[in-house]
């Protein structure tokens, strides 16, 4: 009867040994490969530092000008461009310029990494149902596992700093772009694909002339989601030493500084809204060929 009353479980000692074994295994792995991994990521670190310094060192009017032109190019909307510039002026006026630049650098690099890894994975995934059934649960884990849990091995491997922070952000922000690239390509009209085949497209021609362009609205929704997820990780990443708007928020939590937390939090919100509106407007323009959109 005992069997039904108490769930069978490993003994306390066995359980401890199991955990110790895993920890020791990982520790020895990180001891032997940690340095190699750090070297591997070094170019990334250098680039991140360079980009961050560039943003911080550049005269603020130039940055504002770049923001204005980028947002306008993306959205073709004066409202969004003007709104973005006003937000950045306010951010600067309230003394958060440097932190914001660090965060922007971080988000940009993380998004670029996610795009350059995520789109190819999504493309491969769309080609094979088997690969899809393998990758989908991995993406589920990446999105649902509490971020703190994978911070542990990342920190054990790479210590504290920008690169582990970047890695943590990427793990969290990668899934949407992979999913939506895969989905977008799978949703491409089968008849158009057949036409591409009938005219003798090679695999590459089919991908670049038909699949990617037709999947682009979905892919872009993925980019948008990826940016949002990356921004959501800013505060958590600051716990392992990533500079930016997250650090003051952490301080504010620890010391109950309401205003500090509010200002920095709102700055993150402002960034999120700007990124979101610009990418969404851009995504919509990609569908201008549909009925009702303006010509040319």
């Amino acid at each position: 009867m005992d069997f039904f009353e108490e769930m069978p479980s490993l003994g306390r000692r066995d359980l401890m040994n199991l955990r110790k074994g895993i920890d020791a295994g990982f520790r020895s792995f990180s001891r032997s490969y940690g340095e190699d991994l750090e070297n591997f990521f070094d170019p990334l670190l250098q680039f991140l530092i360079f980009f961050e310094k560039l943003l911080i060192a550049a005269p603020w009017p130039i940055i504002l000008l770049i923001i204005a032109s980028l947002t306008w190019l993306g959205s073709r909307s004066w409202k969004i461009a003007a709104g973005s510039v006003i937000c950045f002026i306010l951010i600067g006026y309230l003394g958060m310029w440097e932190d914001t630049m660090s965060t922007v650098a971080m988000i940009s690099v993380a998004t670029l990494i996610c795009i350059s890894i995520g789109i190819p994975i999504g493309v491969l995934m769309s080609r094979s149902d088997r690969l899809q059934s393998i990758i989908t649960p991995v993406l589920d884990v990446m999105q649902t596992i509490p971020s703190f849990v994978y911070l542990i091995p990342v920190v054990m491997l790479l210590g504290i700093g920008k690169v582990p922070g970047l890695l943590a952000v990427c793990i969290y922000a990668l899934p949407p772009i992979v999913r939506l690239t895969n989905l977008g390509i799978r949703l491409v009209d089968k008849q158009v694909l057949e036409a591409a085949d009938a005219f003798g497209s090679s695999y590459w021609q089919r991908l670049k002339d038909v699949q990617i362009p037709l999947a682009l609205p979905n892919i872009f929704a993925g980019v948008n989601q990826t940016i949002m997820m990356a921004l959501a990780m800013v505060v958590i990443a600051s716990m392992i030493g990533v500079k930016g708007l997250g650090i003051p928020v952490l301080q504010a939590i620890a010391n109950q500084y309401l205003a500090l937390g509010l200002f920095n939090g709102l700055a993150i919100v402002a960034l999120a809204i700007i990124f979101d509106r610009v990418t969404q407007a851009f995504g919509k323009r990609l569908q201008r060929h549909q009925v009702g959109g303006p010509n040319v």
């Binding site: 158009v192 036409a195 037709l214 682009l216 060929h289 549909q290």
Partner: peptide, 8 residues
């Protein structure tokens, strides 16, 4: 059903 490329 024509199967034209809608984005072109």
């Amino acid at each position: 059903r024509f199967a034209l490329l809608p984005h072109r």
